[in-house]
């Protein structure tokens, strides 16, 4: 049943520009580096940081905002598909479970974000190779950091999806999303327990894997809370 639901969800996001944004997001992140390296290449060389190591750091410095904004936009789009014409009553009156509907929305979004993350890895690799950075290409590190950021942001995905699906006025999840972006922008100042800090992969122990584990565990918990709340709500 979940398979069928996901297929219908992918059908419903046609012509909404969602795929375009999925590609634009990672492209935008790398484009910012194009500008960055285009303008300051000499400075990087001068400072002796014209290497893959610093390049990857630069890329993943911007990824958290882009990812969180992407999550805000995609979840709101996903909710608007049913909210706009109040199609929930049609979907839930089909022989499907409510948790199935919720899981399908979540999975569809997760798939889109994984596609984005893969593209981010590819685009970063491509531009890095074009730059001819110093040192060997650290394929594993590149993949690792791109996907770490994704896993660490799963709690934000769970929260935004929950709020977007239950809000009639999409201004609410989007305002919450703006808060999230600002928090992730200030990640350096935030305490380690705030979910918006996690995508920065920064913590007091300097172990990014902790953020990944927290992301997965808390992400699952928030997902479950959101799903249970969605299930007990009446469909108007």
């Amino acid at each position: 049943m979940i398979g069928k639901l996901i297929r219908t969800d992918f059908m419903k996001i046609r012509r909404k520009g969602i795929w375009f944004l999925t590609v634009l997001g990672p492209f935008g992140v790398v484009a910012l580096q194009m500008v960055n390296y285009g303008l300051r290449k000499d400075w990087f060389i001068q400072q002796d940081i014209y290497s893959w190591f610093y390049y990857i750091r630069n890329v993943i410095a911007f990824t958290p905002f882009a990812l969180i904004l992407g999550i805000v936009i995609l979840t709101s789009f996903m909710a608007s598909i049913e909210n706009e014409t109040n199609a929930w009553k049609q979907v839930i009156a089909l022989p499907v479970t409510k948790w199935g509907v919720y899981l399908s929305k979540y999975t569809t979004l997760a798939i889109l974000l994984v596609v984005s993350t893969c593209l981010l890895t590819l685009f970063s690799l491509g531009f890095g190779m074009f730059l001819g950075l110093d040192g060997g290409i650290p394929y594993l590190d590149l993949i690792k950091y791109c996907f770490y950021t994704f896993f660490a942001s799963l709690p934000v995905l769970g929260l935004q999806l929950w709020v977007a699906l239950v809000s009639k006025n999409q201004g609410i999840p989007i305002t919450l999303g703006i808060f999230g972006v600002i928090l992730s922008y200030m990640a350096y100042f935030l305490p380690d327990w705030l979910i918006w800090k996690w995508p920065s992969l920064d913590n007091q122990w300097d172990e990014p894997i902790i953020n990944v584990c927290l992301g997965l565990a808390v992400g699952l918990a928030i997902y479950l809370v959101g799903m249970i709340d969605f299930m007990r709500r009446d469909v108007k």
Partner: peptide, 14 residues
């Protein structure tokens, strides 16, 4: 949809 106009906003703000 809010999401669509917000996307435009984000694309220019980032």
């Amino acid at each position: 949809s809010f999401a669509a106009s917000f996307s435009v906003n984000v694309i220019f703000t980032l």
